[in-house]
Design a protein around this nucleic acid. Structure first.
Length: 351
RNA sequence: GGCGGGGUUCCCGAGUGGCUAAAGGGGGCAGACUGUAAAUCUGCUAGCGUUGCUUUCGGUGGUUCGAACCCACCCCCCGCCA
């Protein structure tokens, strides 16, 4: 099932399997575009909900889109706001044609549905536009999951009908919570609509890891083989590799960047080192002696721990570089292993 | 030398007779984090044989059934005046 692929977008070619760092509000937190290029990032995410609130559509339009605005000229994938239906559940009300949100910033009300979401993503100039969905919580009753899925399917149909920039891609999102028949139906209906790629959403929302893998086993076989498969919001090193093993080509996750800002570094098979902890105050060795990132080649745990300890942003930046390098390097190893035929050996290392 | 203000748990600081091992910050420690309301959040932070006991609010002595809190003296710090 694991595959090595290539995805063409208006802003360049992406080698898959790929990890896509998350840049919700128009930047990967603590990073510059130059830093992202140095790390070898191929594509980053942006978010419809957040960019719509600030700076807002008028400014994004004047800026000439997100690439121009942020000076990132490689591909951008934008999430549609469907995750915020889940993460900001207390601040929204779902209706037939979309969702009323109360802004988490100032409480002001605004509406986001498939038409609005796709239009915003078009203004942003996103290379890969995500169809509007609802990410269901876990656990979710069968009844709720089925109802939500029907609504999501309708929204995705409407999404697909919206005007797009020429050559830009739109991905549909499979939902259906943890129910096999719903997942299968979701995948089949999306394929009928027809998208340039297919995402699997509604996972990594608190369910057991095995359940997530099982959902992939049910879902991926129903997706067209010649189109990219994107597992949204996932995950840990092991989950990425297990995703690839099940036919996933694309991943995004806030873990590397968030963990960095919270003071932890990824090493080895995905273990974390709490660099901000006092036990590293006098540890004058790199986060990972094997790592060849800018952070590990030049700085010690003691120094980074000091920066974290006194609240200097450089500490967050260095750990962000390291963690993103960890993720991007892991995917490079995955790609190499797929070319060499050693993927299963690599997979075994992480289990 | 005179007058006034003050000394509280690792730090700052609240408390002015029992509900006080003592608010609130900070710091420290531990944990969480998966399409980012997150440089965030949660818990613990005197000791122990932990349903309780012991030690603690500058020092000593006293009043009281009971004192960080009231009284006396002493030590130190900060202002102002001479």
């Amino acid at each position: 099932m694991a595959r090595r692929g290539v995805l063409e977008t208006p802003h360049g070619t992406i080698q898959t399997p790929v990890f896509m760092p998350v840049g919700t509000r128009g930047t990967v937190k603590a990073m510059t575009p130059r830093g992202m290029e140095e790390l070898g990032a191929q594509i980053i995410l942006g978010n419809t909900y957040h960019l719509f609130l600030k700076p807002g559509l008028a400014i994004m339009e004047k800026a000439g889109g997100l690439h121009q605005f942020s000076n990132w000229h490689k591909p951008i994938l934008t999430d549609c706001g469907g995750f915020q239906v889940f993460s900001l559940a207390k601040l929204r009300k779902i209706e037939k044609d979309g969702v009323w949100f109360s802004s988490h910033i100032d409480g002001s009300r605004f509406f986001l549905g498939p038409k609005e979401s796709i239009h915003i993503q078009k203004v942003l100039g996103s290379d890969i536009v995500m169809a509007f969905d609802e990410c269901t919580p876990y656990p979710c009753s069968y009844k709720d999951a089925a109802k939500s899925l029907e609504q999501t399917l309708e929204w995705e149909k409407v999404s697909r009908e919206q005007p797009m920039l020429p050559g830009h891609l739109m991905f549909g999102i499979v939902q259906g919570s943890m129910y096999r028949d719903l997942r299968e139906r979701s995948a089949q209906e999306l394929v009928k609509i027809g998208f340039e790629g297919y995402a699997i959403g509604g996972l990594s929302v608190g369910e057991p890891e095995d359940m997530m893998f099982e959902c992939l086993d049910w879902t991926v076989p129903h997706l067209p083989e010649d189109k990219p498969h994107y597992l949204m919001g996932v995950g840990t090193a092991k989950q990425l590799i297990e995703g690839v093993a099940r036919g996933i080509d694309m991943f995004d996750c806030v873990l590397p960047t968030r963990m960095a800002r919270h003071g932890s570094a990824y090493v080895g098979k995905g273990e974390t080192i709490p660099v901000k902890a006092g036990r590293y105050a006098e540890d004058f060795t790199p986060v990972d002696p094997q790592c060849d990132c800018y952070c590990c080649r030049n700085f010690t745990k003691a120094y980074i721990r000091h920066l974290m300890n006194v609240g200097e942003i450089t500490g967050l930046q260095l750990l962000t570089i390291h963690n993103l390098h960890y993720y991007l390097n892991l995917m490079q190893r995955v790609r190499d292993s797929l070319e060499n035929g050693t993927f299963e050996a690599l997979r075994a290392e992480f289990n």
